[in-house]
Design a protein around this nucleic acid. Structure first.
Lengths: 229, 229
DNA sequence: ACAATAGTGTCTGTTAGACACTATGCC
DNA sequence: GGCATAGTGTCTAACAGACACTATTGT
């Protein structure tokens, strides 16, 4: 009765990025059974000796398996039950991480990860499809009223670029004036002095970056973009 | 490397109710070490043989330890780390449950539970204070744009009563007209035919109940009550 | 000059809150 | 009738979206 039951406890990370105006998820080929050889979410056992927290474990998975360091990261939900893993009752603490597309290139070129669109995902082992779906839903929902999509951009970006990211995530066009009002209200950006996008045959756009305070956290609005989604 | 680490895996429930216009949490006296005798959240080990999921485990805790059956229940977050439990690295999947105050009376009268205001909580063992704080924050946040507070009411209630519940949870007065517009928009209520609140020296109020579809789920608005929180 | 996109000013429809009014019970 | 609270009509201020205009680059 007072002896802990034999429950497997893991952390899985849904690492999302934007490519070709569509959300993509980073997957790894499993190197052991069950589902050896299948593409699955980066994840693994918590190391009680090493990890100081669950977030810590998630960051370790990302670092070791995908080379990604210091991304935006938040806990998604915990998936648990006797059916989700053929080895028996298991618990997976799932996290969502967002990175700029460029951050995934090295690991992808090395063949260490595969990047797949979140639509048309099939054949994922365990309940990883459900976990990805939950992550995408969370990201879409939070994008309506927070600075979250900015974490899909690189270090410097223009407002039109940021708007395109919001539109890709939300899946609908946004009014330019409203968008800029909201970004102003969010107050998470600072202009880069003298930084302009160059090389195109039009008026260059001002470059911005995330303010230090919002590099790994969010700015949130009372009322979001008025999407009727 | 492939052997699961010795991690304790538990479920804890923050069972909230409204009393005297203030959120209260249900606590149990711990009957064993660590923290024997202290008031703590209802919780315990997942029973791999018995529980079909984490929600299932949470419902079992509630039923066995507080007598509460069929409340509104949602996953809150998972708290994990080496410090939160003196026995070592532990994982607690935390849930929030809401019930009408009357539902707690039997267990409270039997001395099986203690009901305490969520403000002025002190001396909780483990990281239970943090868990309660997170639960309260979640409830307040979600109350701004959903039918969640209705689960703190009994089976039948009037709109003025429901508004008082929202105001107690949100901690600020709400405009009557706006409130009724939002409730209408949420569409989670149905009037009880011929049901009127009686016995008071004024015009009686119409009684409502939650529509069947919303008995254990939420109705959500695009834009919430315009609180400037 | 022209093409193309960045960025802004302004108008209008929608929505939320204030206020006041009517409705209906008990005494 | 008077009191108290339920429930509604309506005005106004705030806000979001549409539109059009100006700004600034490369060619």
């Amino acid at each position: 009765m007072s002896r802990p039951p034999p429950i497997v406890c893991t952390v899985d990370v849904v690492l999302l990025t934007l490519r070709d105006d569509a959300l993509h998820v980073a997957l790894l080929e499993r190197d052991r059974d069950p589902f050896k050889g299948a593409l699955a979410l980066p994840g693994g056992y918590i190391h009680a000796q090493e990890d100081r927290s669950a977030v810590d474990a998630a960051l370790r998975m990302l670092r070791e398996k995908t080379g990604v360091a210091g991304p935006y990261l938040e806990q998604l939900a915990t998936f648990a039950g006797p059916e989700r893993d053929p080895r028996g009752w298991s618990v997976s603490i799932a996290y969502v991480a967002l990175v700029a597309a460029a951050s995934l290139r090295p690991a992808e070129d090395d063949g260490r990860i595969a990047v797949r669109p979140v639509q048309r995902l099939a054949g994922l082992p365990f309940d990883h499809k459900s976990i990805v779906d939950a992550a995408v839903a969370r990201v879409r929902s939070k994008s309506q009223y927070s600075s979250l999509p900015a974490h899909l951009c690189g270090d410097a970006f223009t407002l039109p670029q940021l708007q395109a990211v919001y539109e890709a995530v939300l899946g609908e066009p946004i009014n330019k004036v409203s968008f800029r009002r909201k970004v102003q209200e969010l107050g998470m950006l600072e202009p880069i002095e003298g930084g302009l996008e160059v090389g195109r045959a039009n008026r260059p756009a001002q470059l911005y970056r995330l303010r230090r305070a919002f590099r790994r956290s969010l700015s949130v609005l009372e009322r979001g973009l008025g999407s009727r989604g």
